[in-house]
């Protein structure tokens, strides 16, 4: 299945081999931890166990900043 992810101002597409993909899988695939990142669908913040739908567009917010 494919997911389109809006992350830090740009859109990228991620492909997963398995059919059931959860928010935690998406974060892991992006090398992010739920300790400092979260996933948004429209105006809703998704829990880590939420299933992602094939082809949907999500926003990922990474809270870590440096400097």
């Amino acid at each position: 299945m494919k997911v389109r992810v809006f992350y830090k101002g740009s859109l990228k597409e991620l492909e997963f081999e398995k059919e059931k993909v959860r928010v935690s899988d998406l974060l892991m695939a992006m090398g992010l931890s739920p300790e400092y990142a979260f996933v948004v669908r429209g105006e809703d913040i998704l829990p880590e166990g939420e299933l992602i739908k094939d082809g949907e567009e999500l926003r990922v917010i990474n809270a870590i900043s440096g400097g």
Partner: peptide
């Protein structure tokens, strides 16, 4: 935490 601030900013 940074995440708590990001959650506040989003909400």
């Amino acid at each position: 935490s940074e995440k708590e601030n990001a959650l506040y900013a989003f909400l």
